[in-house]
Structure formats: structure tokens, C-alpha cells
Simulated scan of single mutants.
Amino acid sequence: MENINDQPIEILVTIDQNYIKPLEVMIYSLKLNNLEQQMRIWIIYDNISTSALTALQNFGQKIGIQVEALAMNADFTFPESLLNLHDYPQEMYFRLLSGKILPSKLHRIIYLDPDILVINSIRPLWDLDLQGKMFAAAVHEGLTDIMSSINNIRLGTTTAYFNSGIMLMDLDQMRQKVKLDDLTDAINEHHDTLILPDQDILNYLYGEDILQIPETQWNYDARAYSVYLTRSAGEYNLEWVMQNTSILHFCGKPKPWQKENHSRFKALYLNYQQMTNNLTKAKK
């Protein structure tokens, strides 16, 4: 009988040239904490040099992860209203359109932002029953649910406000339901109230089609250690995080690889970064 672990977990990232080094750190953390699991990384990109892509693929080969790079389909023409919104790069929309770009043989995929560390197994997320939903994502609730209420008013939604940085995605449903015209229309309609364009659009258009997953396990906001500790009456301390959290997400700015960052988890990130740098410098 074929071992289920012989089937790769499919991972999607959408980055530009500026996030290649953080992506290497993320990939290495993913491998180190999922040693028994086969994985394949799909990179959807628009403007990354051939040499940088080759280096990423060589890095993946060195640690035993297949890296596939797909250029954004030239058939997608992004309107100026979308590209000029708060100067965010178009790569942020690639995740929502990935069903049209990735091979049809892929049926589900885990999207990961590059500014994360994977510190435990992601297999349970991959195996998650989506219960008919198109996405699974977490809500960063904080001590109260005020932000969800504000976003409900701002976007006219009725669901909690989901973070788009880590998502399990049903590609078959996305191929049917996600359309560039819908994204464009939503941006034109809510242009003045959008703060995080792709995340706002995800919630506005598809909030009803998202299954909520625990943030402390799958999308732990590295800025909010004190919030989680207080909310759990002291249970979610550092030992709990290291044993139970699978994905640490370094949301917002500054990032842990920048000097200004003083997150409680910065030292952990720098350790993974150092291991990654040592590996990339090592001779084959």
C-alpha cells in the first residue's frame, strides 16, 4: 500500500525579488519540522530574475524540497486601479488567482506568506476537512472582536475578518468561483476604504466560503504573545507555543530580519536565518 506521506504536500508562495531570502528561511523551517513529509513548493511570480529562481531551486534540491516556478499568465491584465492601490505589488493577488495558473492536476494547496516560521508539523492542516468551504484561514481576534466589527462596517461583511497569510485552498472551487473581474469590480467599488487590498477583497468576496481554523496553531501573530498569554490565563506560554503552534507569522512591520524588530520570537527567527545562510554558503 502506498504511504500517504509519499504524496507531496503542495505549498504556494507568491513573492517578488525582495522576499527571496525570507522565503529560503521559511522553506528551511518547513523542511526541518516536517522531515518525514514530501513537499513541493510552487512559486507564482512576475518579476524575479532567472538566476534568483535557479538559486531557489538549487536550495530546494539541497534540502530535499522540489521547487516549481510559474510565471504569471500573460492573459491576466491587472487594471491600474488595482496596481496603484496603496502601492501594494500585484503579487499579492496571485494567491487568489492561483487556481487559474497552477496545473489542473492540483486540487488543494496551502498558501504561505514568506514572513513565517514553520515550527511543527503542517500535516494536520493539509488533511483538514474543508467541510465544503473554498478556504480555511484564521482570525486574529485579539482580546476582543472589535476589529471584526469595524471591518464588517467598512466592507459590509457579516463574517469574522480572516487573515490571508496562511490558507488551505480548494483549487477546484477556486477555478470555478474566483474571477479577476470580480476582484477588479470590488476594488473599484471599495477603493477608498481598502486597507489591506488582497485580504480585504478575500473577506469581502469570499468570507462566507472560509472555514475558521485556530490562530494559535496555524497563524500565530508573533507580535501578540502577551495577548495570547492573557487570553489563555497564562497557559499559552513559550513552552506551549513551541509544542502546539505549527506556524509563527511575523505580521506587520518591522520584520524579524530587520534591526528594529524586538519581537519575543526574533531570536528564534535569527537562529533559523543563520542556519539557512550557513547552508546556502556551504559547498555542495
Rank of each mutant, 00 (worst) to 15 (best):
R223N: 12
R223Y: 06
V227N: 01
Y204A: 03
T230V: 09
L205Q: 14
F250E: 13
I210K: 13
R223T: 05
N244M: 11
P254Q: 05
D200C: 00
V227E: 09
D221K: 05
D200L: 05
L248Y: 07
G207V: 06
L248K: 05
N203P: 10
N237K: 01
W240S: 02
H249P: 10
R231T: 13
Y206I: 02
L205P: 14
L238M: 09
Y204D: 09
S232C: 12
W240Y: 01
N237L: 11
K253I: 02
L238V: 09
N244G: 03
Q243R: 13
Y236H: 14
P214E: 00
A233H: 15
S246Q: 09
Y220R: 01
M242I: 12
L248Q: 10
D221C: 04
I247A: 11
I247T: 12
Q217L: 02
G252L: 09
I201C: 11
E239R: 07
N219T: 08
K253G: 01
V227D: 07
Y236E: 15
Y236K: 06
W218Y: 11
T230N: 12
D200Q: 06
A233E: 15
S226C: 05
L202R: 06
E208V: 03
R223V: 01
L248G: 08
D209N: 13
Y204N: 00
I213F: 05
V241C: 04
Y236P: 02
Q212F: 01
A224T: 06
E239W: 12
G252M: 10
Y204Q: 03
L229N: 07
L248E: 11
Y236Q: 15
Y220L: 04
S246V: 07
Y220N: 07
A222P: 11
G207R: 13
L238C: 04
Y220G: 07
G252K: 11
N237V: 13
N237C: 10
V241A: 04
R231M: 12
P254S: 03
D209S: 09
N219D: 14
Q212I: 09
P254A: 00
R223A: 02
A233P: 05
Y236R: 08
Y220S: 06
